[in-house]
Design a protein around this nucleic acid. Structure first.
Length: 491
RNA sequence: GGCGAGUUGGCGGAGUGGUUACGCAGCGGAUUGCAAAUCCGUGUACAGGGGUUCGAUUCCCCUACUCGCCUCCA
């Protein structure tokens, strides 16, 4: 069996991964707070841990992996946004959850096995808070319940910082009801116009951290294999989760492996609204950024081109590289022709690709290995090789068999290619062949060149082979522009 | 102030104690009506300073710079 090695934040080292139960590998990842469109930074952990999920499924079997990613649907940002929009909280969270799903689907991110909503687990949170109070790890004060950091000697171990350092250097919220400035909220009172649940401490709502402790325990147990999230969650969120879960369930180990993905940068700077380099996944997909339209596969590739533990800088070069790799994959998949493309089924993935992924999720390395295979000559691109490429692409979450350009490349490699699948492009292709034939007689290529330029501008690759012109739709191709060209040429 | 990551050729980005990936761009050639695509060939690098070593870009230390986290944040 493939040995997976992962960098464990707990130990700061790369360790061999062995699940508690190979028949039930369990992973928890912190999901989105649903109050707005997912920004690009939200997408990074979704993609990173999707690759890990796919790898775990490959190694342990699809039925033996349980992946839980929560939806935080109670939080002050949500309350504020709903109030600002003048809408009900439920309407806001339902809509934004739908957006999140649509955007992650576009990136080829598989749905987790469970996607618990915080508001469905308030009873479990209250029970856990009661247990913490009973064990002397938490205390109620003025309608709040606070976790007592002093009760957990290992506090700070995960993020590698001491309580003294934090008090000295960081701004810590001082509140009169706190016994210790580092104590954090498990439960807080709700005003009449805020969402709330009845509890032993009055009507209120949970603090941010308790939901992950309660939901991971409910769905994965007191001990599970992997907990993931963005590096910025390491402190305080994950540190607090560890404190809550380990104190509530001293018999369990909570998460054995902690994985953190590094942050996203845009042109070398942190993405932020004030810098004007902030954008959502949807902005990118719909071309509302300086990068023009970027497909879901290209965004995914842009992520995979960086190692998850390195900051990823999104810039024009990165987007271009992602586009080039996507085109490379599409052409490679078409090298055996249309019939083969339709028939291809995944086989066993390329060992070198699996090995790279198993080595701490080395996606840039895996892509490098894969690209070696993509570049094979047509003669070497046998059915078996293609099967292995397809299987490897599946592991990376990049099935491009259905892409328009893949089909167009396949036709290019057909022994007897028929007309172009797209009628407007078929017309343009025939017209271009006609114009070129006439131009070769007259020596005036102006018309042929104008059509060619129009096609390129519409996102269509023009390849002129001895057999004649071939038109290939690229990811960015604009069907409306092509239709206009076809109509003009007919007239 | 505390913690962490990083600094590789024009750009992006791997990697290794000795023989210097790869991609893009560039340059030369083949091909082309011209291009594109394709094919062949080709150059430049390891932030600075010490140390360990027969030998360091690769290990250790220091310095500089960059970035992130420490507050809601993926």
């Amino acid at each position: 069996m493939t040995e997976i090695r992962l960098t464990n934040t707990r130990t700061r080292t790369k360790e061999p991964f062995a699940p508690i139960d190979p028949d039930d590998v369990r992973m928890y990842v912190c999901g989105p707070t649903v109050y707005d469109r997912a920004h690009l930074g939200n997408a990074r952990p979704a993609v990173v841990f999707d690759v890990l999920y796919r790898l775990l499924r490959h190694v342990y079997g699809a039925g033996h992996v349980k992946y839980v990613r929560n939806i935080t649907d109670v939080e002050d940002k949500i309350i504020d946004r709903a109030r600002a929009n003048g809408e009900a909280i439920e309407d806001l969270t339902r809509r934004t959850t739908g957006w999140y799903h649509a955007d992650m689907d576009a990136l080829g991110v598989l749905r987790p096995n469970e996607e618990p909503h915080a508001t469905d687990y308030v009873a479990q949170m209250i029970a856990m808070i009661e247990a913490l109070i009973a064990r002397g790890c938490a205390y109620a004060a003025e309608g709040h319940v606070l976790f007592s950091v002093a009760s957990f000697p290992d506090y700070g171990a995960l993020s590698g910082r001491s309580v003294e350092d934090m008090i000295a250097g960081a701004r810590v919220e001082v509140a009169p009801y706190k016994r210790d400035p580092m104590d954090f909220v498990l439960w807080k009172p709700s005003a009449a116009d805020e969402p709330g649940w009845e509890s032993p401490w009055g009507r209120g709502r949970p603090g941010w951290h308790i939901e992950c402790s309660a939901m991971s325990e409910a769905l994965l147990g007191a001990s599970f294999d992997i907990h993931g999230g963005g590096a910025d969650l390491m402190f305080p969120h994950h540190e607090n989760e560890v404190a809550q879960s380990c104190c509530a369930h001293p018999e369990g180990s909570f998460a054995r492996f902690w994985l953190h993905n590094e942050m996203l940068l845009v042109e070398g700077r942190k993405m932020s609204k004030s810098l004007g380099n902030f954008f959502t996944v949807r902005d990118l997909l719909e071309g509302r950024t300086e990068f023009g339209p970027v497909t879901g596969e290209e965004i995914r590739l842009a992520f995979l081109l960086s190692h998850y533990r390195a900051p990823m800088d999104l810039n024009a070069t990165r987007v271009e590289t992602a586009r080039a790799v996507r085109a490379e994959i599409c052409e490679a998949l078409g090298k055996r022709g249309s019939a083969a493309l339709a028939a291809r089924a995944p086989g066993a993935p390329i060992e070198a690709v699996v090995a790279r992924l198993a080595d701490d999720l080395d996606t840039p390395g895996a892509l490098a290995e894969l690209r070696g295979w993509l570049g094979l000559k047509r003669k070497q691109m046998t059915g078996e090789v293609l099967d292995r490429i397809v299987a490897s692409l599946d592991l990376l979450g990049l099935d491009l068999r259905g892409a328009a350009s893949t089909g167009d490349y396949a036709r290019l490699y057909d022994a007897e290619p028929g007309a172009h699948a797209d009628p407007a492009l078929a017309a343009c292709e025939a017209r271009l062949a006609e114009l070129r034939a006439a131009a070769k007689q007259s020596g005036d290529f102006a018309e042929a060149d104008a059509l060619k330029a129009g096609l390129v501008a519409a996102g269509v690759e023009v390849r002129i082979l001895p057999a004649g012109p071939f038109l290939i739709r690229q990811a960015t191709h604009d069907p409306a522009a092509v239709a206009r060209l076809a109509a003009t040429e007919r007239a």
